[in-house]
Design a protein around this nucleic acid. Structure first.
Length: 615
DNA sequence: ATTAGGG
DNA sequence: CCCTAAT
């Protein structure tokens, strides 16, 4: 069309005006971190406390009633004893993956006492190329989720202490962990979906270095959970709060806008499926007692819309489960991390604990916690807020058991969707590996070669270039291996243990994780808008962000909006990664130009015929 | 599904 | 980023 011609950015006559800064209320939540003193009790501590009491009591009652529950707490105790010896301390440092993936004995004991055991699903994972020669393993999902129970069962002897998500905590260099510990933090995460050999695991823990295990299943994690798929050697601790979506890995490349819209839509539809199906799995793996998704953000839950839920695809899943992870799981516990760990523990809410216990009990029982005789009502309160800390005597804690009104058995949906696997195993959907024409889309503008196509980040950080697409054997390999339609165990799946009877907001919609635009992305956006205009966001998306799955056209439109705003305010008022002034100037120019064009069109549409002829 | 705008 | 109305 007429407007398609390249924009001449010169002399738009627009002068940057310093606009009053409008504070954004929505911002900064993330940066608010409570400072904690003392030793707050974390969710798992309380969990162990309550669960221990509950389980022992339950056991007693079951035993008296004669049952088939041939529980074998001995095994669990053995394990813990060993740990105790190793640690040579009064209290045991227990890692999240220990809790959640330990021995089967405890699991079976729980399962037998609370109903039929869940069907066992296996996941097979292989990811060699990306990691550089790692092992393949098979694991039983039933091994998951038993640790808490095991610990709880043995609570009489053991006191748990746990810690927090180190790798997600780091926000800047100052918070960086020493090298060795970064590794360990990574281990904690990766090993969550790793083999379930307790002894071996502990030996690893005991040693100061365990680099061997670090890279395990990076792909799986990155897709299913939070860790970004990066080239190996990625510094876990270097990731910021948005680690799982670090957008800095955008690799713009010259590419032809070849993909048809049809394909685009189809792809999206598949991703929708993935997004929705994925959620049914994790709960199933753990207990067939409770289902529904944990509602993380109540605020949005009520207004949750189907589209909103599905649209966000894996990314959303990531963030959702990530949050759960933050609440419920921990990672390696080491001296220098104690403070931070406790800070995180503070954010464990009562609900976290209660839900976990409830899930463990599995029987239709609802657990409540009594603190000094008074029932803790607000589940959303932090343990600290409620007044529970390590300093307190555990005697102050009590519990209640109530019949659970709603017991909805989880549908064991181990998806049949072959694509389902691509989330966890396949590095890339096949439709993304299509060959790419060498031609460059441009009308011959001066910076034709600069036209950017933002490439997928969340899935595969590599640039989608012809060479890249050509040499990607791991893709087919991963796909071929992806025979079992079950996502690999991952940290977040484990963290999904705590489930709540949540009638409304069944979708548990959650805000997407924030993924700031990189300069490269801005560049691409600006370029595309310069060419296409400000009213064709779908085209902009297709043109410059075709492969950036996490950028919707709405995102691009919004980004443009903020870019315009940013360009108009003084540099001092700007935040985040600084955008080159040159880009901002182009933003203003393009904005002015296309606004003008729009105005012209509105003013004199009748003359259009003649105008076209002239042009 | 897209676009446009307010929040 | 989210939410929605209007296309």
């Amino acid at each position: 069309m007429v407007l398609q011609r390249r924009l001449d950015c010169e002399s738009s006559g627009y002068q940057s005006a310093v606009m009053p800064h409008v504070p954004r209320s929505a911002r900064g939540k993330r940066s608010i971190r409570k400072k904690v003193e003392g030793k707050p009790m974390c969710a798992f501590d309380l969990l162990a406390t309550v669960a221990g009491k509950l389980l022992s009591e339950r056991e007693n009652s079951l035993a008296s009633c004669d049952n088939t529950g041939t529980s074998d707490p001995a095994a669990a105790k053995d394990t813990i004893k060993q740990e105790q010896i190793d640690s040579n301390e009064r209290s045991i440092k227990f890692e999240a993956f220990d809790l959640l993936s330990c021995n089967e004995h405890s699991k079976s004991s729980i399962a037998t006492s609370s109903g039929p055991t869940s069907p066992i699903v296996k996941s097979e994972v292989l990811d060699e190329d990306a990691i550089g020669g790692e092992l393949k393993f098979i694991e039983d999902s039933r091994k998951i989720g038993c640790g808490v129970a095991a610990v709880a069962e043995n609570f009489g002897n053991v006191r748990l202490s746990s810690c927090s998500m180190e790798s997600h905590e780091c926000k800047d260099g100052s918070k960086k962990l020493p090298q060795g510990q970064q590794q360990t933090a990574g281990n904690a995460l990766y090993r969550l979906d790793g083999p379930v050999d307790l002894d071996a695991k502990h030996s690893v823990l005991g040693s100061s270095d365990s680099s061997v295990e670090v890279p395990l299943h990076r792909n799986n994690i990155s897709r299913n959970t939070l860790l970004p798929k990066q080239e190996d050697g990625m510094d876990l601790a270097a990731c910021n709060d948005d680690d799982e979506n670090s957008s800095g890995c955008t690799h713009p490349t010259v590419v032809t806008n070849k993909t048809s819209r049809m394909q685009h839509i189809g792809d999206r539809r598949i991703r929708k499926l993935l997004a929705s199906k994925f959620w049914r799995v994790a709960p199933t793996m753990l207990q067939d007692t409770e289902t529904s998704n944990y509602d993380v953000e109540q605020k949005h839950a009520l207004q949750g819309k189907r589209m909103r839920y599905t649209r966000q695809r894996t990314q959303r899943n990531c963030s959702k489960r990530r949050k759960l992870f933050d609440r419920c799981s921990q990672t390696v516990h080491r001296q220098p991390q104690q403070d931070k760990s406790h800070a995180m523990n503070h954010q464990n809410t009562m609900r976290t604990v209660l839900d976990a216990v409830t899930a463990i009990l599995g029987g239709g029982l609802c657990v409540g916690v009594l603190l000094q005789g008074k029932k803790v009502r607000d589940d959303n309160k932090t343990l600290h807020q409620v007044g529970i800390s390590h300093g307190d005597k555990l005697d102050n804690l009590g519990f209640t058991l109530e019949p659970n009104p709603r017991q909805s058995p989880a549908p064991l949906t181990s998806s049949e969707d072959p694509n389902f696997l691509s989330i966890g195993c396949a590095p890339e959907p096949l439709d993304r590996i299509s060959p790419i024409a060498p031609a460059v889309v441009d009308q011959g503008g001066p910076d034709a070669t600069q036209f950017l196509q933002i490439c997928p980040e969340s899935d595969h950080d590599s640039v989608l270039s012809p060479t890249d697409a050509a040499s990607s054997p791991e893709k087919t390999k991963a796909n071929s291996l992806a025979q079992v339609a079950v996502p690999p165990m991952d940290t977040e799946a484990l963290a999904m243990v705590p489930l709540r009877n949540k009638p409304k907001r069944s979708e548990a919609t959650q805000r997407r994780v924030r993924r700031p635009f990189s300069v490269a992305e801005v560049e691409a956006l600006v370029h595309a808008v310069e060419k296409l205009g400000t009213g064709r966001w779908r085209d902009v998306k297709l043109c410059a962000f075709e492969n950036a799955k996490h950028r919707t056209y709405v995102d691009l439109k919004d980004k443009w909006k903020t870019l315009v705003h940013t360009a108009r305010i003084s540099p001092q008022q700007r935040r985040g990664e600084p955008v080159p002034q040159e880009l901002l100037d182009r933003v203003l120019s393009a904005q002015a130009y296309w606004s003008q064009q729009q105005a012209k069109l509105l003013l004199k549409p009748p003359a259009s015929a003649e105008t076209r002829l002239l042009l």
